[in-house]
Design a protein around this nucleic acid. Structure first.
Lengths: 144, 144
DNA sequence: CCAAAACAGGATAATTTTGTCCTGTTTAAA
DNA sequence: TTTAAACAGGACAAAATTATCCTGTTTTGG
């Protein structure tokens, strides 16, 4: 569904948020360890998220990644996905046709568009904060 | 969503069905042309579909691919996807965790499972014949 | 029988994705 | 001021996916 890079990015962002909630920064090293992700590669993904304005990075000793309270409330999962995988997943034809629309639909168009739209709605309706609270309370997990 | 290979496979199968409905076979050459797919690669995908029992191939002059009436009624889109991309898409965690379930869910588990299940239901409820009739009647398309 | 059409399948190549390594810069603390 | 922690980013490597090429086998029609 999502690329590896995107999965790592979402996991990293959720972890960062749970730390930011209690006023802490997280280092890439800790992110990689706590989300079971390859360190250097996750670093690249985080660079994309910083550029995309999803999370903030602080260099130097005691640096790391963080995300503001308002940001975690307002940022939607759809934005993380878009920042890493692009908008393709929200628009693309299920059968890979470049020009597939209501006027000239592929055989799966209607049924696929319905699912794709449900996915879009779900991703747009889910904030980083939504995903982080369960993790912070030990109800959800980011490993294995 | 689906791999390229899978998209080609679905498009090929639908095209084969529209020809089989009127008692014709289609050659790989025609399939590639009419579905805008790379010939040799599509050939490989079709080999998988033949092995998977989705379509039948006939060698020699006047050979090609075909699919029986009963097969096209009974075969579900989910089976094509499974034959090429595997069952991953029906089971996998949205965040890529290997062990994500109701007992130990990722933060997105419930919301993602719901969408994934809708997709599964849709694919299992759609037959090759369903997809082929619109194409045969000129209401849907497989190119561009 | 022979030629040509057509699928099967191995080998190889190109591209994309995933992943690692190394060097540089920033920054706080000792 | 020096050191070490930590992110940034370029270069490179590995793996997976996508795509092509070529040879072989099957089969029908002339």
């Amino acid at each position: 569904m999502f690329s590896r890079a995107c999965e790592y990015g979402i996991r990293a962002t959720i972890l960062i948020a749970t730390h930011s909630i209690v006023g802490e920064r997280v280092s890439l090293k800790d992110i990689a360890r706590k989300t079971d992700s390859p360190l250097a590669f996750t670093g690249k993904v985080l660079q994309q998220l910083v550029k995309g304005g999803i999370v903030t990075s602080v260099q130097g000793v005691n640096g790391g990644f963080e995300i503001g309270r308002k940001q975690m409330e307002e940022t939607r999962l759809s934005q993380i996905v878009a920042a890493i995988d692009g908008e393709q997943i929200f628009r693309a034809c299920g059968l890979g046709l470049q020009e597939c629309n209501a006027k000239k639909p592929c055989p799966l168009h209607d049924k696929f568009a319905s699912i794709r739209n449900d996915l879009k709605t779900m991703l747009e309706g889910t904030s980083i904060l939504d995903l982080s609270t369960g993790l912070k309370d030990g109800l959800t997990f980011l490993q294995r």
